[in-house]
Design a protein around this nucleic acid. Structure first.
Lengths: 133, 133
DNA sequence: CTGCATGCAAAAACTTTGCACCGCC
DNA sequence: GGCGGTGCAAAGTTTTTGCATGCAG
């Protein structure tokens, strides 16, 4: 039985209105403006819960803390090596890679996670302008 | 200036002769048979160093500790949800996904990491035999 | 009222680091 | 012998958890 809680409501709203894939710490800091006594434990508990319910998505980066995404529609993420930013990619589905992975494999491929990395548009612009100077 | 060390040698050998993508802890336990006084810090330092040198690969799983792979040739990994095992996949390259990701993106895509997950051949066999009984 | 959710703090899990000593080159 | 590597332990980072209290149903 899931009970309503204003903290969870607030956490969800916070995530939904951002597009920068905040970490638990960032959510905590943001929520504290409204609920100064909220605890980091509550933030973690609710982020996990919301992710299990499928209301948000959890993004595990190789290093650094996990990030959370209010956009639950299928899409991919780009990690900028320069500024650390995480960006949503508007790209065609690459679901067919699961079929490719299945070809010579005796198990059942249920899905995959792909993260792209490189230099984001902003950092690329900075790089180009610094070279030309 | 990089100096030889028997610990590093032993760590590298340990990784090379395994195909199960051990964690730092597993390497530590294995190495201790030969060097009972080796420290976990040394294992971590050398695993990072070897990964930087490109002699081994570091695999960051979403949850749980990082794993290491002695096979540095390009290949993909499959994570079994049932038994937690990590398996190398013999599959065609999917490098073209980087091109797809670049299409409507203003940044520079330098690479990507893909992890497949599902049920491994062994766990699938168990599942099938339990259903038929 | 019942029991899930919270706040708080302690602890767990994983990894890095400071420092004195050791051993390769 | 100089400097990178090691062992040891402490600390850092991220996340989870135990417990008494609070609040939704």
């Amino acid at each position: 039985m899931l009970k309503y809680s204003r903290q969870r409501e607030s956490i969800k709203n916070f995530i939904m209105q951002r597009s920068d894939h905040p970490t638990a710490e960032t959510v905590y800091m943001g929520i504290r403006k409204e609920y100064p006594h909220v605890s980091l434990g509550t933030v973690y508990r609710n982020l996990s819960l919301l992710a299990e319910l499928g209301e948000i998505r959890k993004i595990s980066v190789g290093d650094g803390p996990d990030r959370f995404d209010g956009n639950t529609s299928p899409h991919y993420h780009f990690f900028c090596k320069e500024c650390g930013q995480v960006i949503d990619l508007a790209m065609d589905s690459i679901d067919h890679i699961n079929v490719i992975a299945s070809h010579r494999f005796g198990g059942r491929v249920e899905g995959s996670v792909t993260h792209f990395f490189g230099t984001c548009p902003e950092c690329l612009a900075k790089e180009i302008s610094s070279k030309s100077s």
